[in-house]
Simulated scan of single mutants.
Amino acid sequence: MSAIFSSREFRPAAIHVAVTLGLGFLCAIGAGTVDSIGVTKALMGASLGVVLLGAVLAGARTFRSSRAGGRWQVWQGAFWLLLGLSLLWFTSVLPTILFA
């Protein structure tokens, strides 16, 4: 097993990504179950906000871990994963917010 996967930083980063995506999916699923257009738009916007906030927090954790001399590479991977997914998420949420 490599040093990255055996470090104490991998588990918190993986949990951060899983919780962020879980909350985002929960908001998106909630948006699909309501009848009101306004609530649907708010929940879809909230799902995008959750994923973007998770990406920003992973980026901040990357910076703090780098300054402390820790395993910042794991957090950078989480940051780029969440940032890429937030861009994909944006392309699926934008039509719902604009045209629903």
Rank of each mutant, 00 (worst) to 15 (best):
L57Q: 15
A78G: 06
V50G: 07
G45C: 07
F79E: 09
A14T: 05
S65Q: 15
A60N: 13
G69N: 11
D35L: 12
R67Y: 02
G45Q: 05
V56A: 12
S2L: 11
L26M: 14
P12G: 04
Q73G: 05
T40Y: 04
M1L: 12
T20A: 11
L82V: 03
F63W: 15
V17D: 01
R64A: 08
F10S: 13
G24F: 00
V34F: 05
L83Y: 00
L48N: 01
T62H: 13
H16F: 01
F25H: 12
I37N: 11
S36M: 02
T20M: 07
V34Y: 04
F79D: 01
L87W: 09
P95S: 08
F99C: 01
T40F: 03
M1R: 13
G32I: 04
A3D: 10
L48H: 04
A42N: 06
R67W: 02
G24W: 00
L87A: 10
A14P: 09
E9Q: 14
A13S: 11
S7Y: 03
T40R: 15
A42F: 05
G59N: 15
L26W: 10
T40Q: 14
R71V: 03
G49I: 00
L23D: 06
G45A: 06
V39C: 09
V56R: 13
S86V: 03
A14R: 12
W89V: 01
A55C: 14
A68I: 04
S92M: 12
K41Y: 00
C27E: 00
S36G: 11
G22T: 02
W75P: 02
F90L: 15
L82D: 00
V34I: 09
G38E: 10
Q76L: 07
T33I: 09
V51A: 04
A58Q: 10
S86A: 13
L43E: 00
A13F: 04
I97D: 00
G59D: 08
M1S: 15
G49T: 01
L23V: 04
T62I: 03
A14W: 02
L98A: 13
R67S: 05
L85S: 05
A100Y: 14
A14Y: 02
R11S: 06
V19R: 13
I37A: 15
L85G: 03
T20S: 09
S92N: 14
G70W: 01
A100H: 12
V50Y: 00
F5N: 15
T40H: 12
L23M: 12
F99N: 12
L81C: 06
A78Y: 01
G38F: 02
R11G: 01
V34N: 11
L94S: 06
G38L: 07
I37R: 15
V56F: 11
R64K: 13
V93R: 10
R11F: 05
A55T: 11
T91D: 10
S6A: 13
V51M: 09
W80V: 08
F99S: 11
R64P: 03
F25G: 03
A55E: 11
V19G: 06
L21I: 11
V34P: 07
G69R: 13
M44W: 02
L81V: 07
M1C: 11
S36N: 14
I15D: 07
R64L: 08
A58D: 05
L82R: 05
L43Q: 00
L82S: 03
S66H: 13
T33D: 05
S6K: 15
L57C: 09
A18Y: 10
S86P: 07
R71Y: 02
Q76M: 09
L87F: 07
